[in-house]
């Protein structure tokens, strides 16, 4: 239980960073931290006490493996997070070239 709460606290640190910070790169870092926390949460769910990795080996029994499905899911999710990060950083580099600042309160030409 406390593990889950710690993981969600990590998520909250990321969320706080996205909501309150002004530097574009800090916001991207916040999104990255949120993604890490979400992936970790998935794997925590699948853990079995005294479990072992879900790989067949000749000499070991198979009835105490950890849950393999969340691992496959997180495999995909890590890559989706990378794709998002690529796009966000590319956009923010171009924004810096246009606006000459990384401060999101100054990047405010669209109004209404």
């Amino acid at each position: 239980m406390s593990i889950y709460i710690l993981c969600l606290i990590l998520f909250s640190v990321g969320l706080y960073c996205v909501l309150r910070k002004r530097n574009l790169i800090k916001i991207i870092i916040g999104i990255g931290i949120m993604e890490y926390a979400a992936n970790l949460f998935f794997i925590l769910i699948g853990y079995r006490q005294e479990g072992r990795a879900p790989i067949y080996a000749h000499d070991q029994v198979i009835n105490n493996m950890v849950d393999p499905l969340p691992q496959a899911v997180v495999l995909t999710s890590i890559v989706l997070g990378l794709a998002l990060m690529l796009l966000l950083v590319a956009i923010s580099i171009r924004i810096y070239e246009k606006y000459r600042t990384f401060d999101i309160t100054k990047i405010n030409r669209l109004k209404g």
Binding site: L15, L24, I27, M34, L88, I91, I95, N108, R109
Partner: peptide
């Protein structure tokens, strides 16, 4: 354009949250 990039960034951040 500058405004398009700004809008895209804000949309991307909100949507990924």
């Amino acid at each position: 354009e500058a405004e398009a990039l700004e809008a895209s960034f804000k949309y991307a951040v909100m949507s990924s949250v």
